[in-house]
Design a protein around this nucleic acid. Structure first.
Lengths: 214, 214
DNA sequence: TAGATTGTTAATCGATTAACAATC
DNA sequence: TAGATTGTTAATCGATTAACAATC
């Protein structure tokens, strides 16, 4: 546990590397050095080498990294090869947009269920998956393995639903509701706080305008 | 600049404080100590006091913080009081979902334009704003102040569009495209990388399953 | 006043960067 | 071989936590 513990700061950067290497591959680039990578990604070469070495030596002295190989290795680390089942809880604007978002499939995430409280939506189909009554959630979770439950419900409904989802067997929560879910520390949660992101922009814009006054 | 520079790590936490204090206010809570806050938000009291003190002493020894006052002060720091104009560039699933998302208005962000390349969408109206031809962007930007341009276009279109948007006067970019935009360092950019977020979940799920095998 | 809790300085911890020997 | 670039250790930097005097 202590030995192979990888800092969150490192994990956060892996998808960036992965994405960029994918693009290089498409362009037919075969090798790249940490120095070149660092220039493209606007970080230090040291950090890239340090990061990658947490997982083993993927490079070769005097040569650099083989793009395809590194891409695959990072893919393995991120577990992109495995297929994941996803459900979407809350079929409002955001929920529907997620259900429609085809790129998830490219990363092996497959929407197998969509749920809402609104009867008007029941039976409506998005990319072949029909929206069900949220009351069917518990039943659904006993019958299917759910790796990710995307929570796109109003904030006040989120904490209880999240707790239920975990109780009923969802392996992780992808939380879009603007609340800090208080779940047991061993529950996997990824927060996407759009309003927080927007408020950081707001802060920077505000700072910017103050600077300009001075 | 050096003196009043606030670390990004601090800024990142402000919206969390703000959001939580808002909820406390709704519940009629009048005062709170850093200790209580720290328990609710799962961080140390020290960090909260340290963070807040970057901006001045909002608390009172022996008493704690006045919820309403602190909420307002953080609001001011974040610039939530100011009204912001937002446009949405790319009216696909995500773009439309953002245009429909009413909570932005609560934080004083107002959608004043939506743009796409697809002629079928032209004239369609979302919350009173009609979708326009993306060719009208430059013109639009000369006529309106745009604080935030939300970029919800396919990744290959994003870098060039982002550069144009900045050139034409957009003050900041809220980037949802899965690319690292390389823009001049003084350009304000907030990235929302949904796939990256999902891949971190994927990583954690993968780790979890490895642990369970052992 | 006594108790509580801040504001703030000092200590610790962790993450990033620099440097360089190993080696392709 | 000589040049390039990694893997890895050591140095630096920054962020978090602890501690406590100030003070409400």
């Amino acid at each position: 546990m202590k030995e192979n513990y990888i800092a969150m700061a490192v994990i956060r950067r892996l998808p960036t590397y992965y994405r960029f290497l994918g693009r290089l591959m498409e362009q037919g680039v075969e090798r790249i050095s940490s120095k070149e990578l660092s220039e493209q990604l606007q970080m230090t070469a040291s950090q890239i080498r340090q990061d990658l070495n947490h997982f083993g030596g993927f490079g070769q002295q005097g040569y650099g990294y083989n793009v395809k190989n590194l891409y695959q290795e990072i893919g393995k680390i991120l577990g992109v090869e495995e297929s994941h089942n996803m459900i979407i809880v809350g079929a409002g604007n955001l929920g529907q947009a997620l259900a429609n978002y085809s790129s998830f499939a490219k990363r092996n995430f497959h929407v197998i269920g969509i749920f809402d409280v609104n009867p008007k939506l029941f039976g409506m189909t998005i990319r072949g998956v029909s929206i069900q009554d949220i009351d069917c959630l518990q039943q659904f979770l006993t019958e299917h393995t759910v790796d990710v439950a995307a929570l796109t419900v109003p904030w006040h409904a989120a904490p209880e639903l999240a707790a239920d989802l975990v109780k009923w067997g969802a392996k992780s929560i992808w939380n879009f509701a603007p609340v800090d879910l208080k779940l047991p520390p061993d529950v996997l949660v990824e927060n996407v706080q759009l309003l927080d992101s927007l408020m950081r922009l707001s802060y920077s814009l505000h700072e910017r305008s103050l600077e300009e006054e001075a």
